[in-house]
């Protein structure tokens, strides 16, 4: 049962109007939920995590552990002057940050977060996620090209090359999951993983796809890091090479949007991994939504950990890894999974 249906049933009246109100309310709840996470991650968690890796104290003045920094930081970012570069391609330049944020946010619509927090559960859930998430590439190109800045242009080009190279392996690995579950529907994927794989005395190991096929899990992790553009694959931004890549010319609210978009993307990557590899909201004792949150934050932590210790690869090496290694391995994984699933079915 999805969230809009729950709300609709709780409403005193029925009909199309109630359906619309319920959908809107549910979308607001989930959007706010995701945004809250990113707001916490961007100005606060990222600082604290980086500080932990580098033996620093970092923000500690407002609220417990300095978490109150979120508010002044938001005020600071939003109140800055919006500088529009000369010769910017206006509609595209303005739209790019929105495309970036909403492409990631929309994809959350089909992610089951546990405890009924699930906006929609279409039969093509997984395809929807990948399709919507890859719209972000469009936003990157728009931002890079419309900024009328050579660094932004280079960054935009890099972003496209990278997303092309890593989206295909990503989807191929996703297909291997579909072979296993036999369904594209997200709720179905989660349900399949709930089945017990083996029982070790009192402990029962669930059939999470990460446990069933760790090879695919590792491949997906790598491809996902590239997809969200974090070390070692952060070449589209690469501040020490091309200043800030496609986001060089963005300031104020637009910058906030792009920044948010990046974090929503990291969380989306975490959500996809949690859903198709780590059993979604499944977990003992705690409610599902908490487990789901823990899983996506763990993925966020992982990207930050990579940032602290892993060098950025060069653009040609990045493309090479994508096309020559990851794609091949993704196909190997696909065929292997298909064979195993076929044999088991027969």
């Amino acid at each position: 049962m999805t969230l809009p249906t729950t709300i609709e049933e709780a409403l005193p009246v029925g009909g199309v109007a109630a359906e619309a109100v319920a959908a809107l309310a549910a979308a607001t709840v989930i959007g706010t939920f995701v945004m809250l996470n990113t707001a916490l991650a961007g100005p606060w968690a990222k600082r604290k995590i980086t500080a932990a890796f580098t033996d620093r104290i970092s923000v500690n003045q407002f609220g417990p552990l300095g978490v109150g920094i979120v508010v002044p930081d938001a005020v600071r970012l939003v109140s800055k002057e919006l500088i529009v570069p000369e010769g910017a391609d206006r509609p595209a330049w303005d739209l790019a940050p929105l495309v970036l944020v909403f492409s990631a946010l929309f994809a959350f619509a089909v992610i089951p977060m546990g405890n009924g927090v699930h906006l929609a559960d279409p039969a093509v859930g997984l395809v929807f996620v990948f399709a919507i998430a890859s719209v972000a590439s469009l936003g990157l190109v728009m931002a890079g090209y419309a900024s009328n800045n050579k660094y932004a242009f280079l960054g935009g080009l890099r972003a496209v090359a990278q997303n092309l190279a890593y989206e295909i392996p990503l989807i191929l690995i996703g297909i291997s999951v579909v072979l296993y579950t036999g369904s594209l529907q997200m709720s179905e994927i989660v349900a399949t993983q709930r089945e017990t794989l083996v029982s070790l005395g009192p402990l029962s190991v669930p059939g999470w796809f990460a446990i069933v096929n760790p090879f695919a899990f590792v491949l997906f992790l790598v491809a996902n890091v590239a997809e969200v553009g974090r070390n070692p694959f952060d070449v589209p931004e690469a501040p020490t090479e091309i200043v800030a890549g496609y986001q060089t010319e963005y300031s104020s609210v637009y910058f906030v949007l792009i920044y948010l978009g990046e974090f929503v993307h990291i969380f989306l990557g975490g959500a996809i991994i949690a859903t198709i590899f780590l059993g979604g909201p499944a977990g003992p004792v705690l409610p599902g939504i908490v487990w789901f949150l823990l899983k996506i934050w763990a993925m966020f932590l992982f990207t930050q950990w990579l940032r602290s210790a892993v060098p950025r690869v060069r653009i040609d090496q990045l493309i090479e890894i994508g096309w020559k290694r990851l794609l091949v391995l993704a196909f190997v994984n696909l065929f292997a999974t298909a064979t195993v699933v076929g044999v088991l079915a027969a």
């Binding site: 932990a52 890796f53 033996d55 990579l306 602290s308 210790a309």
Partner: peptide
């Protein structure tokens, strides 16, 4: 090894 080093610090 590099990742372990930073994790140790963390």
């Amino acid at each position: 090894k590099g990742m372990a080093t930073t994790l140790k610090h963390a």
